[in-house]
Amino acid sequence: MKILDWYILKRYLLTFLMMLLLFIPIGITVDLAEKVGKIIENEAPFSEVTAYYIDFTVYFANLLFPLFLFLSVIWFTSKLANNTEIVAFLSSGVSFTRFLRPYLIGATIVAAVALVLGMYLAPIASQGFNEFKYKYLKKHKKIQETRHVYQQINDNDYIYVSSFVPSSKTGNNFTYEHFEGNELKYKIFADNIRYIEKDSSYRLISYIKRTFKDGEEIVEKVRRKDTILPFELADLTPVEYAAETKSYGELLRFIESERKKGSKNIGRYEVVKLKKWSLPVSIFILTIIAVAVSSVKRRGGMGVNLAFGIAIAMIYVFFDKIFGVMAEQSNFSPVIAVWFPNIIFGILAVYLLQNAKR
């Protein structure tokens, strides 16, 4: 049986690798053909373009790992079935569950790689990928909230700016409120606020501070005041892709920080976090479905199995995208949104596996 295990495991991993090597260059070629005009128009340096496509490779390989694996398993298992090799294996007294073991070993290896990639390497690639995209390809697209920004900085402090310019780290109509318990202790107003990076301070124009103490109000007014406040203005409205660029530990701290601030993007961040775990699980589910579907020799040959596999893959992507968008843009539970496709396809995997055993 070790010979059978090694034979299937090698085919599993080599076919998956060949699928990646085949489709990633195609993806790069299509992407380059679509964006080459903007790259030339915006005079993107060759070194940055090269770095972008390295990041592109890691970013999309991580994103499409389960689907590449699914199609590769259908491909080589269908070949085994058409050559009646599977019939020979099972006729020798090997149970279907035992036949499935090398597939699950291969899925474990790929899932471990996907987990490490998603936790640590993909965030680095996402940073470079998105920075290039918004620098050269979507120069005028807004990636941060810039109007009526309201944030809770910590348990006691709240700030507000009516408009915010990330590039210059400035805001208009600034308000800062400090509470102790439910009691407002002081409130700061300014027509304009600017972050001074040199000494990590803030310059407030038309500064007014109202302090409430023992039932009295003390008012301080100055034309300009440089002071230190417990936040960075650029951190008040993280870019849309902020969660994608953080390793798992950083992401957990980031979500907790944004939750305290009352961020309205928590659903989006939670989806990113949960997908780091759901993607490796989907590798096992799709592997079982692929084996169950393609292990039977059919009259139409591999074409029928591949067509069925592609249909399942499209449905999986549809569910994944639809529920992901619902969680990001509404109060829909991120846990349900991320795990629902795996639950549905997990049930399908069990059903198909039982039929395949029979």
Rank of each mutant, 00 (worst) to 15 (best):
M1S: 14
I3F: 10
I3G: 04
L4K: 02
D5Q: 15
R11C: 05
L13G: 07
L14E: 02
T15W: 04
F16S: 11
M18Y: 14
L22G: 10
L22E: 08
I24V: 12
L32S: 01
E34M: 07
V36H: 05
G37L: 13
I39E: 02
E41Y: 14
E43I: 15
T50W: 12
I54P: 01
F56K: 04
F56Q: 02
T57E: 06
V58S: 00
V58W: 07
Y59S: 00
F60A: 06
L63T: 12
F65I: 14
L71M: 08
L71Q: 03
V73F: 00
I74L: 11
F76R: 06
S78T: 01
T84L: 09
E85G: 01
V87I: 15
A88N: 13
F89Y: 10
S92P: 06
V94T: 13
F99A: 10
L100R: 00
L104W: 10
A107E: 00
T108D: 11
V110D: 01
V110W: 00
V113K: 01
A114C: 11
I124P: 10
I124D: 13
F129A: 05
E131S: 03
E131L: 08
Y134Q: 01
Y136C: 04
K138R: 15
K139M: 08
H140R: 08
K141R: 04
K142M: 11
N154V: 10
D155C: 06
D157S: 08
Y158Q: 09
S162T: 12
F164H: 07
S167C: 07
K169Y: 02
N172P: 00
F174P: 05
T175Q: 13
E177Y: 15
F179I: 02
E180L: 09
G181Q: 10
G181T: 06
K185V: 00
Y186G: 03
A190E: 07
N192M: 11
N192R: 14
R194M: 13
Y195M: 09
E197V: 09
R203M: 07
Y207F: 12
K209I: 06
K209A: 10
T211K: 06
F212L: 13
D214R: 06
R223G: 15
I228R: 09
I228Y: 13
F231A: 08
E244Q: 15
K246N: 05
K246E: 13
K246T: 02
K246A: 13
G249D: 15
L251A: 06
L251F: 03
F254L: 05
I255D: 03
S257G: 13
K260A: 14
G262T: 05
G267R: 01
E270Q: 13
E270R: 08
V271C: 08
L274R: 10
L274V: 09
K276E: 09
W277P: 07
L279I: 13
V281Y: 13
I285T: 07
L286D: 06
I289P: 00
R298H: 06
R299N: 14
G300P: 05
M302H: 04
M302T: 13
G303A: 04
G309N: 08
G309M: 11
A311K: 12
M314R: 08
I315T: 04
Y316R: 00
Y316F: 14
V317L: 09
F318C: 02
F318M: 11
F323N: 10
A327K: 03
Q329C: 05
F340N: 10
P341D: 04
I343Q: 02
F345P: 10
G346C: 01
L348Q: 03
Y351N: 02
L352F: 11
A356T: 06
